[in-house]
Structure formats: C-alpha cells, structure tokens
Amino acid sequence: MSLADDSQGAGSIVGINWGSTNFRAYLIGADGVLLDEFSRPAGVAKLDRPGMEALMRELALQWPEHVPPASRYHSAVYAAGMIGSNVGWQEAPYVVAPAGLRELGAGTVPATIGGVMLRIVPGMTCTREHDGGPDILRGEEIELFGFARLHPEWDGFVALPGTHTKWVRFGGGQLLDFFTSMSGEMFDRLTSAGLLASIVEGEAHAGDAFYEGVRLGSERALGLGTLLFGARARVIRGQLARSESSSFLRGLLIGSEIADALAMHPGLKDASVPLIGSGPVCRLYAAALERLGVRSSFVDSRVACLMGFSALHREAGR
C-alpha cells in the first residue's frame, strides 16, 4: 500500500529500523500511530553501498510524499540500527549513558542514501555500575525511549529478550546502564550445528523440562558449559526426551541469564520487569521470571518502536 494522499499523513515521519538482517520502515502519524509499513529481508550485512542506495530509492517510490529527495529535505526520516555502525552506511558515534532522549537526538548524524536525506540514530554505550564493565547497544534505544515516553514516571528495569537480550536500568528519564546476554544467539548456534544439534527436536515451551533448566541455570551449582553438555547426556541416558531438549536448553540459558540480572540488580526481586519484544520469546522469559519470583509484563516492540521514533522527532524539532 502507498499513501500518496498527504492529508492521511500530515505531520507524519518515517522511522527505519535497519539491522544486520532486515530492513523495516514505518510511516508514523503525528500521534505515533502506524499509517503504513515497508519491509525487506535486506539488512546491512547483506548489502553493499549500491544495494543500500537502491533500497532507499525503492522506499522513496513507495511513499513519495513522505520520503522526499534531498532537494526537499524536511528532516522527518530517521534510521536506527546497524546502518549507523562501522559496517553500515555511516557510523553514528555512541551516546554515553547516563543519557536521555535529548542526548540521543543531539547525537543523530545527517546522511544521504540513494538521494534521500535522513538522520542516523546513534547507539548507546555505558560503563556498568555493578562491575565497571563496558557494554553497547544499537537499535534498541528507539524501543527503550518509546517505552519511557509511554511510561514517563518509570524508574526501574526493562528487558528486551532476543538474540542479544538487553537488561536496562532507567532512572529520572535517563538510561543509566545495561548489560547484554548472548543467550539467544547461543541457543540458535547450539541447536543448528555441533554436538547438541543432534539431540534437539521441537520448539521450546514452558513445561517441566524448561523449568528444570531454569532451576539449574539459575542455581549455578555448576558452570553453564558443564550444564549444556549435560543436556546431551540426559537425552542419551533416557532422562530427557528429545522433544523436550529444546525447552531444557532454553531454560538453562534463560535461567543463567536471569541469575546474572539478579546478581547485578538485586532489586529486581521486588520489581515488575517490562519485557519488550515478540510474544513467543517474551512468554518464555515471563515464565522463567515468575518461577524465580519476579513479576513481568509484556510490551509490544512495534508499539514501543513507533513511539520512540515519534519522541525522537519531537525532541529533534526543539
């Protein structure tokens, strides 16, 4: 669908989430409501610079009244994600936390791709209070500040379950610090190749095998490497059905990750943690958190993303 009638999108903006594997663009109304969307399986890892330019020209043809050429630039197109990394179109330097939406807006970088002028959104970096370790994120800042705009009084923790799950601490409207767990990527790689792939069948779900994995992963009586190999031994010895092995592995990884979160932020025990992401993976995290005595709630990632781009645009226009 193309929205050529400008009356349908007066005051609209375009927000682009351009990651490593996918390109998702949203036409967003002045009130933060989705008017149209455009997506391609064309992340920056799959495109050279001519390919990126061609994709932006395709987007401009899709929404000609809202993605104007450089000669009619009106500063209403924003691109977040890996497009602003050192493997993207142009690097947008990280904003150092603690920081809020104002600092994020000030850190946007103007660029022209395929004849379309836009602003590339920076990622964020922090030095964790807990251990002095560094961390980085790029792309998630849009969802995080979208959530913060929806809940302006929020002080506490937010989690974004996914391939690289982020656990973020907010306070006073600022992103304070965060840590990243690679448990999602570990699960994908362990179940697609290598020794454990040979024992995995079915999709993960919150059942007895999952909760046993959560218990073992969170208790940390043994290291994660030992526990992971133990999944194979359980299947070979007939103590774990192949159809439940995926659930058990997910439980081990998520349980260990939540143990990290509780070690860094003991206050999580008494908090309710918003989970921003897709339904299936968030349901697994919610089940694991509940089993470990932590409340949670679900936040649709697309809603947070739309509100984040809208909030960023309002901040940039000041």
Score class of each variant (00 low, 15 high):
3 L>K: 09
4 A>I: 06
6 D>A: 14
8 Q>K: 12
8 Q>C: 08
10 A>S: 02
12 S>F: 04
13 I>V: 08
14 V>H: 02
14 V>W: 06
15 G>I: 05
22 N>R: 00
24 R>I: 03
24 R>Y: 04
28 I>N: 10
28 I>Y: 10
29 G>A: 15
30 A>D: 14
32 G>R: 05
32 G>D: 13
37 E>F: 12
39 S>G: 08
45 A>F: 04
46 K>W: 02
47 L>P: 00
49 R>C: 00
49 R>K: 14
50 P>T: 01
54 A>V: 04
54 A>T: 09
55 L>Q: 11
59 L>V: 06
60 A>I: 03
61 L>Q: 12
62 Q>K: 15
63 W>M: 07
63 W>C: 11
70 A>M: 04
72 R>I: 00
72 R>Y: 07
74 H>D: 12
75 S>E: 13
76 A>T: 13
81 G>Y: 02
82 M>N: 00
87 V>L: 05
88 G>E: 02
92 A>F: 13
93 P>Y: 06
95 V>W: 05
97 A>W: 03
97 A>P: 02
97 A>Q: 03
100 G>N: 07
101 L>R: 13
101 L>V: 10
102 R>K: 05
102 R>C: 10
102 R>G: 11
104 L>P: 01
105 G>Y: 10
108 T>A: 08
108 T>R: 04
111 A>M: 00
116 V>I: 14
117 M>G: 11
119 R>V: 00
123 G>T: 02
125 T>C: 11
129 E>L: 12
130 H>F: 14
130 H>K: 04
130 H>Q: 06
131 D>I: 09
138 R>V: 01
141 E>A: 05
144 L>I: 13
150 L>E: 12
150 L>A: 15
152 P>K: 00
153 E>S: 14
154 W>V: 03
154 W>C: 03
155 D>S: 11
157 F>R: 03
157 F>W: 11
162 G>Y: 01
163 T>H: 02
164 H>N: 14
165 T>E: 09
171 G>D: 13
171 G>L: 05
176 L>F: 03
182 M>P: 10
184 G>D: 12
188 D>K: 12
193 A>E: 13
194 G>C: 06
196 L>K: 05
196 L>W: 06
198 S>R: 15
199 I>S: 13
201 E>Q: 14
205 H>Q: 09
205 H>Y: 10
206 A>L: 04
207 G>C: 06
208 D>C: 00
212 E>C: 02
214 V>L: 11
215 R>Y: 08
222 L>M: 11
222 L>Y: 10
222 L>I: 00
224 L>V: 06
225 G>N: 12
226 T>Y: 10
231 A>C: 08
232 R>C: 11
233 A>I: 00
235 V>C: 08
235 V>A: 06
240 L>A: 07
242 R>K: 15
256 S>E: 11
257 E>L: 00
259 A>S: 14
260 D>M: 05
265 H>P: 01
266 P>A: 08
270 D>I: 03
270 D>P: 01
286 A>K: 01
287 A>K: 04
290 E>W: 01
292 L>T: 02
294 V>C: 15
298 F>Y: 15
301 S>W: 07
305 C>M: 15
306 L>N: 11
309 F>Q: 07
312 L>K: 10
312 L>Y: 05
314 R>G: 15
316 A>K: 04
